[in-house]
Amino acid sequence: MTSLDQMPAVVLNLVLENCEFREIVVLRKVCKSLRNFIDSTAPDLKLPCIILKVYDSNITINYGNDLNIRYQKFENGVGVCLQEDNKFTVLENANLLDVVFVDLKFALTFQKSKMDQFTLRWDLKENFDTGDFVGRLGNILESNPLSTRAFHMEAHNQTEILSLLSKLDSQSLEELWIFNPDKQNPGGFFYLDRVVELDQWKNIKSIGIPTFSISEHLLPKFAHIVWSVLNFEEISFGGVVALKNALLRSPTFQICDFYYKTLKATDEQVEEEFGVPQVETRGKKWFLNIEGSEQILGIVQEKYTVYSRFLFSKTDPNPVPENEEDHIIED
């Protein structure tokens, strides 16, 4: 009987084209000739996402389509299982990170088509060298720039972000979220000065950095971003005005939602700049004309006990009731 491993290359390639990640992994384990064939032709894995979660004694990788692999540290080695059935295969005397990186290397180097999401998150209580982990991941991506629409990362510092972000395909990346790994105590300052200089930054359409505070001096670098959620410990009035002016000129901007603890300006100063506001229960609203556009710039300021918020958004003029048109001021 003719068998699978004796099929001509044309046929095997067609079969692999119709296989998903799980089947390719399985076929690679069937025999040496299939493994060699797969390794030499490197079929696209067509993964929708890779979501990595690192815990103290285990690591999970979600490859999308409900495929979750769990790697667990055992006394005598490493257990690997499908999250759904929890049946561990134990690799004796193996090292958790080594096992994870062998599998990640396979997935990250074979994946060619554009993924929807690449994510790295941590949930660590013990000492763990996150820099080393990110560095190893970055080394894998070095030779094969990963194509993904979105990149989400809990990062401890700018170097960690740079290690991965700089190696993603800049043409594909549209969305970037950076989170504080310390979920109990969000906040703290995050340097972004080198990130905003990357090629990858220029094509990003939406960005979220909700749990770190960033420098207001970087705000001009956000003018091309369509959609952003930002956070500032402290922002000067000059910073807000510069942002407003940059957004008024930006052809791409749609929404900029930012939270701040301290605004170094009085209400009078704000009203002098933006005009007489429309006062609502939760805050104030302004509508500014955008030169050369039919749309208008809506500004909402809401004040809360710890964080307050400015929401800038480009909208159609229709939602403004007629009797409030007086408040629209010429910019």
Partner: peptide, 27 residues
């Protein structure tokens, strides 16, 4: 050929390496 190869891929779905070896008598 494309349909046949799709069918082969379908037969691989959900199987373990051992099962594939057994089905196709691969040593």
């Amino acid at each position: 050929l494309t349909y046949c190869c799709k069918q082969v891929a379908m037969m691989v779905k959900g199987k373990s390496p051992e099962e594939i070896r057994e089905i196709w008598m691969i040593p």
